[in-house]
Design a binder for these strands. Structure first.
Length: 474
RNA sequence: GGCCCCUUCGUCUAGUGGUCCAGGACGUCUGGUUCUCAUCCAGAAAAUCGCGGGUUCGACUCCCGCAGGGGUCACCA
């Protein structure tokens, strides 16, 4: 039991889960899965002011949509619950009492405004602010109405981070941070250590914003007589400008938006993993199974990576192309254009087969396939704007379409027969494919682009194809 | 300002002293695939390896300094 790997994802419900958060979750999940361990979801909802209604559900929905299943969590329970920090206040009180008893915690008698004065003083002198420089000599008894602080033991640390490598810091980074706020809720700094201990977490994987606080945590682990878990610190995912942390402003949609647009979970995870990780080979496309097998924390980049949506688009297209037709059909179910509602499965399968290689994401399905289901309005632009077709007179166009019609009327509309007839038409009309095929394509689709002509005609079928040619003639 | 982290093509990256006048991928451009879009294939442009010093026969790789970027210094996580 004690040597099973247990990792956790511990978001705070203060907003939507975005790509950066997903990456932390993904890597923690991968570590657990590849070691046959367990992955836990814990909600860190100790900040009542910033709590966002529905955020927890959004996080849960996102993880489920991505397939990052967890073994214990607020909605499914587990043997070390509850998994919501707001429901674990008794635990924090108990551990706080231990520190109080050993003289490693004390009540903070200052008002926030008073501390603010100290802080501004330090800032004016261009020194970092350290609360412990103001540590009261005879702190009052803690009655819960004021913050409880950790009595730190400043010292240098040298430690190993699974991602960052060996790190060292001096005693100046250690301070008396708050354990329990005056509202009775613990701070992250305290709560996560209690929870990770009680939940037997073996690997903490978290974002870079915690890097400079970790020495403080080590100090607290010591005071509690605990040995800290393995730690891994992830660099941030950056916005397109390459500077700031990725935010919604940068076009970083939340994960569910991507899922709704028809990005495949596997592609999304492949993309997110490759933002700062690779296996050292030239492989770019990884299945989830690949990722579980190959992932390792020590190959995670130390620097931030920019979010490049173009690359995501490409990767998603690549994953779509690797899907079996049946699979793609299942996943596409809700993306068809409204006009496809009446069409049968067999027809939609044929259509899907033709567009599979040009789909970048499933929500593109309607614009790529609409003409298979409905007669699009005549679009004269397609001829007047075409470099070759625009040179033909109305008479010439009519003549070409008539010849085409006559030939296709004799066709059984098999791919082979259509191909032969189209080739024959090239000879009898003495036209280049760029002219004849373009014209037929425009007439039968009224769309700016479509799959290959013969393939398209086969799927459209004889009746529809001829009807549309006649429409163009009218 | 203190402390900590980071720095290879536009972007994601390979690279752990010589096989790198730096490889792959996305993107871009060119050509081919009987028409368009996409796919696929072939090819091109694209990094004086942030800068400056060392160490070494030899450095993208080791050391030192500098610069730039980021994080942090909350009763937020």
């Amino acid at each position: 039991m004690s040597d099973i790997v247990r990792t956790r994802f511990a978001p705070s419900p203060t907003g939507l889960l975005h790509v950066g958060g997903v990456r932390t979750a993904l890597f923690a999940w991968l570590v657990a899965r590849q070691k046959g361990g367990e992955f836990i979801l814990r909600i860190e909802d100790t900040d009542r002011a910033r709590h966002v209604e529905g955020a927890e559900q959004h996080i849960i929905d996102s993880l489920k949509a991505l397939g990052l299943n967890y073994d214990e969590g607020p909605d499914i329970g587990g043997q070390y619950g509850p998994y919501r920090q707001s429901e674990r206040l008794d635990s924090y009180k108990q551990w706080a009492q231990k520190l109080l008893d050993s003289g490693r915690a004390y009540a903070d008698p200052f008002k926030p405004e008073e501390i603010q004065v100290f802080r501004e003083q330090a800032q004016a002198e261009k020194r970092p602010f350290l609360y412990r420089n103001h540590r009261p000599e005879n702190p009052p008894t803690w009655d819960g109405s004021m913050p409880l602080r950790f009595k730190s033991d400043p010292k240098p640390y040298t430690r190993h981070d699974e991602v960052m490598g060996d790190l060292s810091t001096g005693p100046e980074t250690i301070d008396d941070f708050i354990l329990i706020k005056s509202d009775g809720y613990p701070t992250y700094n305290f709560a996560h250590i209690v929870d990770d201990t009680e939940m037997h977490i073996t690997h903490i994987i978290r974002g870079q914003e915690f890097l400079s606080s970790i020495p403080n945590y080590l100090n607290l682990y010591e005071a509690l007589n605990l040995s800290p878990p393995t730690m891994a610190t992830m660099p941030h995912i950056l916005g397109p400008d390459g500077k700031k942390k990725l935010s919604k402003r940068d076009g970083a949609k939340d994960v569910l938006d991507y899922i709704r647009d028809g990005f495949l979970p596997e592609a999304l995870l492949n993309f997110i993993a490759s933002l700062g990780w690779n296996d050292g080979t030239e492989q770019e496309i990884f299945s989830l199974v690949n990722l579980i097998e190959l992932f390792s924390l020590d190959r995670v980049q130390h620097s931030g990576a920019r979010f490049d949506e173009q690359r995501l688009l490409w990767l998603n297209g690549a994953h779509i192309r690797e899907l079996s037709l049946d699979n793609l059909y299942m996943l596409s179910e809700t993306y068809w254009p409204a006009e496809a509602a009446e069409s049968d499965e067999q027809y939609k399968m044929q259509v899907l087969k033709l567009v599979q290689e040009r789909l970048k994401y499933l929500a593109e399905l309607p614009e790529l396939t609409r003409f298979f289901f409905i007669d699009l309005p005549r679009n004269p632009e397609l001829i007047s704007g075409h470099k070759q077709l625009s040179k033909l007179s109305a008479e010439e166009i009519k003549e070409l379409l008539n010849q085409t019609k006559q030939s296709l009327e004799q066709s059984d509309f098999s791919l082979e027969d259509l191909t032969n007839r189209l080739n024959d038409l090239l000879e009898t009309t003495e036209q280049k494919p760029a002219v004849l095929f373009s014209l037929i394509r425009v007439a039968t689709t009224q769309a700016p682009f479509s799959p290959a002509l013969a393939d398209t005609l086969v799927v459209l079928g004889k009746k529809l194809s001829l009807a549309r040619i006649e429409q163009q003639l009218a």
